[in-house]
């Protein structure tokens, strides 16, 4: 039972109070140019996912708190949450333990 802290509202809670949305930073090709999405690009978007041993960037949602989505970096070996960052923020530099220290830019469509 993982213990998670929502970076949006600060609620701390059990994994069952949150919802995991899987791998983060998958861009949706149709949002950029709906008429020019190759079959391969659509396949990758729908089905191709990483399964790393180590750092994994994920989307989570504070289901029993503020209802907001956020990003988290989690180590799949130790299950430790290394950092949390906003849902519209792009990925911090790899393995940065402190999200505040990494310069992140707001970017539309950075989610999913």
């Amino acid at each position: 039972m993982l213990m998670i802290t929502c970076p949006v509202c600060g609620a701390e809670g059990d994994e069952t109070d949150f919802h995991c949305g899987g791998q983060a930073h998958i861009s949706r090709p149709a949002s950029t140019d709906p008429h020019n999405v190759s079959d391969d690009a659509q396949r990758d978007y729908l089905y191709i996912r990483n399964n790393p041993k180590g750092l994994h960037r994920e989307m989570w949602m504070c289901a029993r708190g503020c209802g907001k989505w956020f990003h988290a970096e989690r180590d799949t070996v130790t299950l430790e949450f290394k950092s949390y960052y906003g849902i519209t923020e792009s990925a911090p530099p790899s393995s940065s333990p402190n999200p505040a220290a990494s310069k992140t830019t707001k970017k539309k469509s950075a989610g999913r």
């Binding site: 919802h19 949002s31 989307m59 989505w69 849902i87 989610g111 999913r112």
Partner: peptide, 14 residues
């Protein structure tokens, strides 16, 4: 309802 929220927050936050 969750589906709509997810799209609004993650993909179409504008």
């Amino acid at each position: 309802a969750g589906w709509l929220e997810e799209w609004l927050q993650t993909e179409w936050s504008d």
